[in-house]
Amino acid sequence: MTVFLGGSVSRVAVLVLAALGSACAGSTEPRRVVTLVTHSSPGGGSDVFLREMIPHLTRVMGGTFIVQNIQGGSGAKAMAAVAGARPDGTLVYATTPTFIYTSLLSDPAARYTDLEPLVNLFFDPEVLYTAADSTFATLGDVLDRARTGRGRWGAANPASLERQVMERLKQRAGVAPAITTFEGGGDMLINVLNHTLDMGVGELQEIRAQLDAGRLRLLAIVGDERLPQFPDVATLEEQGIALAVRKFRGLAGPKGLPADVIAAWEAAIPKLLDDPTYRQLYTDNSLQPGFMPHAEYAAFMRAFGAETEAFLKQSGVIQ
């Protein structure tokens, strides 16, 4: 923006930045209240997820939980707020791959490495799908088309886990389809339904309505195992392509979380996931339980970050 403007204005911009940098977002919540921070807006994916979880979490863990939406900068502001908070367990952040992508794609004040992964709760199963009235019955048909003609595949967002899936699938299957990205899953879904795309990749939850109405056909699960709701749909590995991703949903906190806080969450989450009413809810929402204790989650996050960074560098998105 400073492109368009003269010196006096870029000085304004500097002032603004200075003011911004010095603004410290301190939480003044009273104790025994745990704030669950999300970068999604009210009504967005993580927000709905947290709000639905709270009543069940309260039953299992006790205490009061509130959701705080810290939007902006694709998660950068939420990360900064959490990284700067007191590590006493009163502020935790709902993690999704977004916070890793934002850390790698831009230069935020706090990165994913400045946060302490706490525990993982779920995985969002990623699936490959096509329109039910398309000519493709199996993934093989789609790959054949990409081999012989012009394959057209879609992923929801330009630099995202879904894009990574499609690029890797292209490499491993040895085909050269056109891969397009959209502004979100709904936008892409329309292009699968109207046959602009042969195949799309996305979270099961996003396409659930169309799937139930019989307008979409699942081609493969991009994960380690089949889904209980769709036992007939094989994973990519089973179809001979070594590719699986795990789109995680977990919690993280500021660095230096005390051991008792970590232990409390490690004890509570398995109980939460076993809770029959909550199980019903998350199964309906197509979430796969994927509890990981603190140590395992931290290692997982490091590996996920490294793999994503490698992909982004390899494809030239970042230097």
């Binding site: 950068a76 967002n157 330009p158 502004e183």
Partner: peptide
């Protein structure tokens, strides 16, 4: 902001505020 096809940042000068 973020380029709609490749995902590289354009004219953001590294600022996360300008990503979107």
């Amino acid at each position: 902001g973020t380029d709609p096809v490749t995902g590289v940042n354009r004219f953001t000068f590294g600022s996360p505020e300008l990503l979107s």
